[in-house]
Design a protein around this nucleic acid. Structure first.
Length: 428
RNA sequence: GCCCGGAUGGUGUAGCGGCCUAUCAUGGGGGCCUGUCGAGCCCUCGACUCGGGUUCAAAUCCCGAUCCGGGCGCCA
């Protein structure tokens, strides 16, 4: 097999003076000084200077002049210690192989000098993602996801995968995307809720799923998407308090892991992390309503959330939501059924997660479904799982993009997704 | 969906009735230059979203469409 690369840019150092290496990547910049040409090569790990003085021969110099920015090349050369070079060394090439010449002009500037608007960037996302700063977001995202998986596994959770094509359109609440499923209509799932709860009847006890969810809402904001990645857990023999404890420790763990593993990325993004302290502050819905200055039973508006967020200034929980403000499956409090064993995890900027202890008794569940104006028959496949031994359980769903967005201080949720899906965009 | 703002070379912008044959930067093409690191210098290329209207005159004002941004709403 052809070897295009023996070393990434960060695997070459001063003490390799004289060694032969093959590097590959994209032409980041070209500086042609006439008798000497500098090529800045960019690969996944950084930048590298390829220096071609006339002394290396007219042929190589000519080859260097054929290059254009973002052309893909593979360079065989010798490492040379050189004080005048950016990292104290450079590569003197013996061979420059052009693997794919980039067309000109480029749809946007990859060197970060001339900014491009988000819309332009998303249209040319493959190119936008070559920018180290943008790539850093997704390297952090990788570490966030790894951290979540490690943490939940260590807490005894099993990773599961549930259907994304579902039959029920009658769950109420959010709008669904209908799809055609052979001779029937089906929908893209808005949440793994029903399925992860059904898993509680299997004895697996603790499950988590990281997967896409789809919402057909016509929202048009910097913190909503129509396809998002949801981190969901469900936990048997547990209460709302138990899963809140898991959630806050998870958030803290993610922050710690990112801080430990993503120093370079955080520097590139100019982010200094504040590790949230556990336990997070808990305020009841009643207290939230008081801070916001609204009536009991009203939903918190975006401005109310901001107001409370400023008041508290860090991650916090809003607990004991009115039962009627939450979905049918949340467990009403026995001492006061008007409120429920439910909670939202808030970042000062926005809601990150919501969860609850669930109803595990089939009769009460049916009653609540009816009280929400829904038809229990549509939920038969779900309710049935509650009839033959369903333990008490609790869980939550956490928006991965919002977690990353608030972690990195991104001002648009689209920045946290490779190819965002919103009201206006289905391509690329 | 509502309110507000916007659309000018590939990218990011200035211009907001006549000084526009449209500014600046970056970029593309060509040239000079052996130590650049946002290289420098010279030449050159390239744009007023679309359709109507007002006016002697429209990038500029008005109407409509399309697209984009922000805020809000919607968001079991």
């Amino acid at each position: 097999m052809m070897v295009w690369r023996t070393h990434y840019s960060n695997e070459i150092s001063l003490d390799m003076d004289g060694e032969s290496v093959r590097v590959a990547g994209w032409v980041h910049e070209i500086r042609d000084l006439g008798g000497i040409v500098f090529i800045v090569l960019r690969d996944r790990e950084g930048l590298l200077q390829i220096t071609i003085p006339k002394a290396l021969g007219e042929e190589l110099l000519k080859r260097a002049r054929e290059l254009s920015r973002e052309t893909v090349i593979s360079v065989l050369g010798k490492v040379k210690r050189e004080q005048k070079a950016p990292n104290g060394f450079e590569i003197l090439p013996e061979e420059i192989e052009i693997l794919n010449k980039a067309a000109t002009p480029l749809p946007l500037d990859t060197t970060d000098r001339i900014p491009a608007e988000l819309d332009t960037r998303l249209d040319a996302r493959y190119l936008d993602l070559r920018r180290p700063r943008i790539q850093a977001i997704f390297r952090v995202r990788h570490h966030v996801m790894q951290s979540v998986r490690r943490f939940l596994s260590s807490e005894g959770f099993f990773e599961i995968t549930t259907p994304k094509i579902v039959a029920t359109a009658t769950e109420g609440g959010t709008a669904l995307f209908p799809i055609s499923y052979f001779e029937r209509e089906a929908f893209l799932n808005q949440s793994p809720q029903l399925y992860k709860q059904m898993m509680m009847a299997t004895g697996l006890d603790r499950v988590f799923e990281i997967g896409p969810i789809f919402r057909a809402e016509e929202h048009d904001t910097t913190r909503h998407l129509n396809e998002v990645t949801s981190i969901d857990i469900e936990c048997a023999f547990a209460t709302d308090e138990d899963v809140m404890d898991i959630l806050e420790r998870l958030i803290q763990r993610v922050y710690l892991d990112v801080q430990e593993n993503c120093e370079k990325e955080l520097n590139l993004l100019k982010v200094s992390l504040n590790i949230p302290e556990v336990p997070f502050e808990r305020i009841t819905y009643d207290e939230a309503v008081e801070i916001a200055g609204i009536g009991w039973g009203e939903d918190l508006s975006t401005q109310d959330e901001k107001k409370i967020g400023e008041h508290i200034g860090e991650h916090y929980f809003i607990t004991r939501w009115p039962t009627d403000a939450k979905p049918f499956y949340v467990m009403p409090c026995s001492e006061n059924p008007k409120v429920s064993h439910s909670f939202d995890l808030m970042h000062p900027r926005m809601e990150l997660a919501s969860g609850a202890q669930r109803i595990h008794l089939p009769d009460l569940l049916t009653e609540r479904i009816e009280a929400n104006g829904l038809n229990p028959e549509s939920f038969e496949f779900y309710i049935e799982a509650f009839r033959y031994g369903m333990p008490p359980h609790a869980g939550w769903g956490l928006g991965a993009e919002r977690l990353i967005m608030t972690l990195l201080g991104l001002d648009n949720i689209r920045e946290a997704v490779l190819f965002p899906r919103d009201r206006k965009r289905v391509t690329p």
